[in-house]
Design a protein around this nucleic acid. Structure first.
Length: 198
DNA sequence: CCAAAGATCGTG
DNA sequence: ACGATCTTTGGG
């Protein structure tokens, strides 16, 4: 369970995800342990988080601070509610569209840096809630949905640390990123979290 | 019914 | 350090 979502979180690093014409290589993620994890939206079962209890590799999307969307990969098993928040990525295709959606030019490392920015670059909204991220699509036509790319093969140097922005379980080191990658976001502790241990 | 919180981000 | 912005959640 806990080990499972962590393993799947780490396995998402280096893998690509395509959203509505933009593809990113995932460089930073956070694991959330579902009903056992006080920081998870699935800690208490509510309508919002219902898809988290469903089958693995579906998309869980929520609105953050009324402003952004955040995209998560549900990791199963069903009824547990575990999921992985996609925090940052490197845009590898659809740069123009990503720049347009983000309203910035130039600094491409910032196109999908941070979960709100990543979802925006991929064009992910609540309309995409529940999407099967592994469903294959007929090729030949331009694909406009959301899908994960093939599993990443090579070994990566992975670093870890506490999750960003959570007020509960604030010191659980379930944030994972590709060491040294410039697209990884900065750590920010929640102001509501209790003081860190010495 | 109402109040509060929130897995953020850009600016100052 | 702060505000934007709004949905969801939980308490009374």
């Amino acid at each position: 369970m806990a080990a499972d979502v962590v393993r799947r979180a780490r396995a998402l690093l280096g893998r690509t995800i395509t959203g509505h014409g933009v593809t990113v290589r995932i460089t930073e993620v956070e694991a959330y342990g579902g009903m056992e994890d006080p920081a998870s939206h699935a800690f208490t079962r509510t309508p919002r988080s219902e898809v988290m209890y469903g089958p693995a590799y579906r998309l869980y999307v929520y609105r953050s601070y009324g402003i952004h969307f955040c995209a998560n990969v549900v990791t199963g098993p069903t009824e547990i509610g575990a999921a992985v928040l996609l925090r940052s990525g490197e845009v590898v295709d659809g740069h123009d569209l990503a720049r347009l959606r983000r309203g910035i030019e130039g600094r491409d490392v910032q196109l999908a840096r941070g979960p709100g920015n990543l979802a925006q670059a991929l064009g992910i909204t609540l309309d995409d809630l529940g999407t099967d991220l592994l469903a294959d699509h007929p090729d030949g036509e331009h694909f406009t949905g959301v899908r994960l790319g093939p599993e990443h093969r090579r070994r990566l140097r992975i670093a870890s640390g506490p999750r960003v922005g959570v007020s509960k379980a604030a010191d659980v080191p379930w944030r994972f990123w590709i060491e040294g990658d410039p697209t990884v976001s900065a750590y920010r502790r929640s102001p509501r979290a209790p003081a860190p241990p010495p």
